[in-house]
Amino acid sequence: RDVMPTDQMDKHPLQNRWALWFFKNDKSKIWQANLRLVTKFDTVEDFWALHNHIQLASKLTSGCDYSIFKDGIEPMWEDNKNKRGGRWLITLPKQQRRTDLDHFWLETLMCLIGEAFDEYSDDVCGAVINIRAKGDKIALWTKETENKEAVIHIGRVYKERLGLSSKVVIGYQAHADTATKSSSIAKNKFVV
């Protein structure tokens, strides 16, 4: 304990270290150049310090994303930890940006850092929020579409944590399907 720096005392460690990424759409640059690693954190206190410091998602301009991923996983389909996986997708009509978007995103973040999915939390890779004029999206990414039990458990808990009505159906799509889709709607592999 003698060697622990003062600012690390009394902080609550997280199970995982997480990285926050920011994407800003600048069409003059290639996609990867618009994606920036903001910072990493691994305690509850550092999470809140970060969350309180950055712009609320609902205040970002259209075309921007926040992503939060486990350290070592890049927020893109191509990453080895993502490529066999998929995402639980929440789409929000424009009018819900004001009422629900920031709340849903914070709940998503708390599910991730708090390891809300018990042993299936190991299947979680991260989450992404897309701010778009045509409708915002929040997605929770998992590592393996074939891990049906994990995917379904995560979807059920996630839906409950967001406080969504049992009448609302949310879908899980494989990244491989999203990446190759010809229409604007990828098919759902699972729903809860």
Partner: peptide, 18 residues
């Protein structure tokens, strides 16, 4: 090993503590 789990209530309390 043991997983470090924090429920919503605990996380929100940490947010509000000085």
């Amino acid at each position: 090993g043991t997983r470090i789990i924090y429920d919503r209530k605990f996380l929100m309390e940490c947010r509000n503590s000085p």
